[in-house]
Design a protein around this nucleic acid. Structure first.
Lengths: 155, 155
DNA sequence: CTAGAACTTAAAGTTAACTTTAAGTCAAGG
DNA sequence: CCTTGACTTAAAGTTAACTTTAAGTTCTAG
């Protein structure tokens, strides 16, 4: 089964212009053409496209992804490089996960803050609350929000 | 203690031009000015800036953040709206977390893939491996990568 | 009182990742 | 054969979030 750019775009849930753009940027050198010049995506190209999609979600740029594709097309000589690339990406994702976790804590705190404000009818309730009255799990983030990053929130 | 824009920028680890840009976009209406027109950040403004930073990390646009700031300045009448905003943001973050988790699984799979390729000296080793030989935790993601999203990878 | 570092604004420039447009070509059904 | 919808490319346009520049002002230390 082969697909035109429009069909593949629909299948993947992206715009056809996006796939054309990716092709122009060298992300799809594996896509063949008909004698008339029309892109013919093969079933097996879906895996490439899924990997590209995942790399994008991981925050990689088009340029970085192209490097990977180029390495992959060079064959088994670049296995080490590709492994190193994904190992680095693993670290990046761990970092992102930690940051997201932290952002989540802040939003959880803000939800508690406005729930408390809602009950009392004023933000003064949570805003002026003593640290000891604040639920234990929000104390750290509250301290952190009230000081510059890197500023010791100690003693 | 008050800070100029440059001092506050340094404290937060951002460019001064960024703070000026945020101010122009209405994100910092709480910052006062000297008689000569120079921004004077107060200690308590740090909390505002930290919240703005967290909202940005959560993927909110400048426009959305301005809405929040405007609501906050309107006072206690907007508590419900602000609570709703952070509750929605909680959902968005949960979604982001799930996506990041999924991306991580893909990268873990790719690391396994290239480790296996490295041992064997060729990507054919992992590429042509039977599903049953693939470590159990990578089977689902491997199936998924090889089909279009939404395509049932069943039976 | 003055030098110069840091501030001010408005406006233009940058970057990434697309999207749109324009002018033309391909391919399938009637 | 011809129409029509989807394809092609190159080039220009879009958007968000900054950053840089230019021209001028303010504050502080000597």
């Amino acid at each position: 089964m082969v697909y035109t750019v429009g069909e593949m775009a629909k299948l993947l849930g992206v715009a056809a212009s996006t796939l054309r753009y990716y092709d122009k940027e060298g992300l799809l050198p594996f896509v063949e053409r008909s004698s008339g010049g029309i892109r013919m995506f093969r079933e097996s190209d879906i895996e490439w496209l899924q990997v590209i999609g995942c790399m994008k979600k991981a925050g990689m740029s088009i340029k970085d992804i192209r490097q990977y594709i180029e390495m992959a097309l060079q064959g088994d000589d670049t296995i080490d490089l590709r492994l190193a690339m994904f190992r680095r990406q693993q670290e990046v994702l761990k970092q992102q996960m930690a940051e997201l976790q932290h952002t989540m804590e802040m939003v959880d705190y803000k939800c508690w803050y406005y729930e408390t404000a809602k009950e009392a009818g004023t933000v003064d309730a949570p805003q002026k609350m003593e640290l000891a009255e604040v639920p234990e799990r929000f104390r750290k983030i509250r301290q952190e929000l009230r000081t510059a990053p890197g500023t010791a929130a100690t003693i």
